[in-house]
């Protein structure tokens, strides 16, 4: 929760039409901020403007524009901003990112504690935990499949790895049997997400699961990590395959 006093205001300027993996950039940035537990963020759409390319973009009806300026603003503590700024700059692509010292006179009130996840990508060895989340393929969160949103949220919080499995038959909290009738048309299967990381990081992620999963089962078990390797951006190729099946029960 933000406290009155010094803070940082971050403003990101984008073009409405710019996309990141097929999704509007502003929407993936907003999801990222949410997953990382940012206190609040606002997206505003401009009616006219120009950016680095010096093209004037306006909402003139004659050329229906999908390049209107978009502005995302949020206010957070200096540490939180520093922790996510690198990733934000990468996500903003050609857009402009501005930070500004600000002062909070009155903090917004929240009814519940927000999730606080330690983002450091730790090297894990030995004891770890596996978190399995059971849900239905039909479950949705903010207009997208819940399993996808959970994977994105785990990725945003640097959970070491997650795999989604589709069951061919199953039932869960709602007692409806899900059967994968046709290989090609079923979107109603039972799903299981399996994620491995340290107990602390998975427990820290749990408040996010609380917020996103309305119906389902989450199961924790202890595992021993035998090998954990991941490919750093410039590491040689033979360096890695995620040892994600170190399931020692």
């Amino acid at each position: 929760m933000l406290n009155p006093g010094k803070a940082v205001k971050v403003t990101i300027y984008l073009s409405e039409g710019s996309t990141h993996h097929g999704v509007p950039i502003y929407s993936s940035i907003l999801d990222f901020l949410f997953y990382r537990g940012i206190a609040g963020a606002t997206v505003t759409k401009g009616i006219a403007g120009f950016g680095a390319d010096h093209h004037m973009h306006s909402s003139n009806l004659i050329d229906i524009s999908d390049h209107l300026p978009i502005k995302i603003e949020f206010i957070e503590s200096r540490e939180t901003v520093d922790a996510i700024l690198g990733k934000l700059e990468e996500m903003a692509g050609t857009g402009l990112v501005e930070t500004q010292e600000t002062n909070i006179a009155k903090a917004a009130q929240t009814s519940r504690a927000r999730p606080k996840v330690q983002p450091e990508h730790l090297k894990i060895e030995g004891k770890a935990q596996m978190m399995r989340i059971y849900l239905s393929e039909e479950d949705r969160w903010n207009g997208k499949p819940l399993y996808k949103a959970l994977v994105e949220a785990m990725r945003a919080n640097d959970i070491a790895g997650v795999t989604v499995y589709r069951g061919i038959l199953g039932y869960g909290a709602h007692r409806r049997i899900h059967q994968d009738e046709s290989l090609f048309s079923s979107h109603r299967s039972s799903l299981m997400l399996s994620a491995i990381d340290t107990a602390e990081k998975l427990r820290a992620f749990l408040p996010m699961v609380d917020q996103m999963v309305e119906e389902g089962l989450v199961v924790f078990s202890d595992v021993d990590i035998i090998k954990y390797a991941y490919r750093a951006p410039d590491a040689p190729k033979e360096a890695a395959s995620p040892a994600h099946d170190a399931d020692a029960e």
């Binding site: 909290a173 749990l206 389902g216 989450v218 199961v219 924790f220 078990s221």
Partner: peptide, 8 residues
């Protein structure tokens, strides 16, 4: 296992 069940 430790389990948490969510229900609507």
């Amino acid at each position: 296992v430790d389990a948490i069940r969510y229900r609507r």
